[in-house]
Every structure is written in C-alpha cells, then in structure tokens.
Computed example of a mutant assay.
Amino acid sequence: MPAKQTVVLISGANSGIGLAVANQLARDHGYHVIVGARNAAAGEKVAAALVADGYSASSVQLDVTSDESIEAAVQQITREFGVLDVLINNAGTLLDVSDHGMSMRELFNHTYNTNVTGAACLTEACIPLLRKAELPRVVFVSSRMGSISEASDKSKPYYSTDYKTYDASKAALNMVALNYNRILEDSGARVNAVCPGLVKTKLTGNHPMGSSTELGAQRIVEVATAGKGSPTGTFSDRGGNIPW
C-alpha cells in the first residue's frame, strides 16, 4: 500500500449503504478501505472482492455494541497502519416497524446501543489514530428524521410514521457528532453528520420509494473526501444543509 494512501474505516460496510461507500472510496478515490463488519467472514469477502479487482482493502471484525470488539479492531488498525484518516460511523439499526417482540425499554436500549453509544465508543477509541492524520475526517451517518426542527412539520412525508426510537437515536447521534467536532477542532478535523436519504436496503425493508445504495452513498463519500477548509460541524444530505 502506498505510504500516503488515505486509510478509511467504515462500520457496517459489508452490505447496504456501507458497502456502496466502501466501493466508491476504493474504486473512485483510491482509498484503502477497512471493511468493518460484525460478521468477520462477510467483511473479508467484501475486502477480497475489492482486492481481486485491483483496489486496496482489508477487513476487521467490528461489532460497535461490544467494547472488546472495538478495542481489538483499533489495535489491529494501529498495528497495520498506525493512522486513521477517515472514520465513517455507518453501522445502524431500525427496529420500530419490525416484529421484534421487545418492550419499549428494550427497544430504546437496543437502538441506542448501536446508533448512538456504539458510534460514540468507536469514535472515542479511534481518536488517537485520527489525531495522527494530516486531515482527520469523521462522518456520522444520520437521518433527516432526527432533525428536531422538522419533527413537528406535518407536511413531511414521514410525520405520521411511528419511528420514535429511530428518530430519537438519530437526533442524539447528531449531538454526538457536534461534540466530536468540538473535541477534534484543534486537529483541524472535519466532523459532519450526513443523511443518505431514503435508501432501498434491508434496514428500510427495501422500501419501494428508496433510492439505490450508490445514490445513498453519494453525500457520505463527498464529505469523506472533502479537503482542508471544507465545512465541519454540519448536517446535510444531497440537497444541502438540514436544520438540526
């Protein structure tokens, strides 16, 4: 791997939007992509396919709900690369509309453990590696449905959809993003929250109105590849900034 190649870790990168982001960053931007996947074999398969096509990739077992998994993943990245240029917190869950059989407390705990706590713990663990980068970038994959400003707007198509757990988790994730923007400010880092839009994935039940994963990855990739002086501390989608 070239010495100055940009190294990016993507959580939940073995499928859906994360996979599309991994493909675009490796194929279109020449990044070394570290495929973070809870299922190690699934991550290895994605990385192997990229390498077979002549791109730079590797994988790491990563379950953001496990401190032990996060620690092991960061140790592996430290040994192999010694630096992390870009972190994309993509792993997420949506349980509100599924037949999960959970109590309300269990539903909130499970959702927050992945969408909020997991992203925060992974980012915190990666800070030493990010600080070694010339231009650290952190992307939190959020959702417009977490916009407090839009939550009371009855004209929004999702206003009547009961996604309270998911919505609350994404609003909380936005606050996590703003805090890490503050924490990493002295390093010149660019830390942003991005909404990929409604995308046809397993998480959304392959919603018929959803866009392709390639289109969903577009804004994430733009922010992950932005240069010095680019916006930081923002919340946006393909159409521009979203009100917090």
Rank of each mutant, 00 (worst) to 15 (best):
A42T: 12
K154C: 01
L107K: 10
P128T: 06
S160D: 11
N90P: 06
L198A: 05
L25F: 04
N39A: 09
P157D: 08
A120S: 13
I10H: 04
V139F: 05
S66G: 09
E150D: 12
S155A: 10
E124R: 14
A193L: 07
A37M: 11
H100T: 15
Y55E: 03
A22W: 03
E44R: 02
L203T: 13
D96V: 01
Q5R: 15
A26Q: 05
A47Q: 00
A189R: 06
S143N: 05
S155L: 09
T65W: 00
R238H: 12
T165F: 08
S66C: 09
S152Y: 07
Q24F: 01
G54Y: 10
P128V: 03
L25D: 02
P196W: 05
C195L: 07
E124I: 10
N206S: 12
R190N: 14
A193Y: 03
I220K: 04
G18T: 04
S155R: 12
S56G: 08
A47L: 00
T111P: 10
C121N: 15
M104P: 06
V97S: 15
T204I: 01
V7R: 13
D63Q: 09
A168C: 13
H29E: 03
E71R: 15
Q61W: 00
A57P: 10
Y180Q: 12
L178R: 11
F81S: 11
D237R: 01
V194Q: 02
E68A: 14
N39D: 15
V223N: 09
G210E: 06
P136T: 04
C195R: 04
D96L: 05
K170D: 06
V8T: 12
S69H: 10
G197Q: 00
A91K: 10
H207N: 15
S98V: 12
A72F: 02
T165A: 15
D99T: 07
E80Y: 06
S11W: 00
S98M: 09
S143Q: 03
T117K: 08
G239S: 13
I148L: 15
S230W: 05
I127T: 13
A57C: 10
G43A: 11
K132G: 04
L215C: 02
T204E: 01
Y159F: 15
L25M: 10
V194E: 03
T234S: 15
L178G: 13
N109Q: 13
I148T: 13
E150M: 14
I148G: 06
M145T: 14
A91F: 03
R27E: 13
G18C: 07
V46S: 06
A224K: 00
D99Q: 14
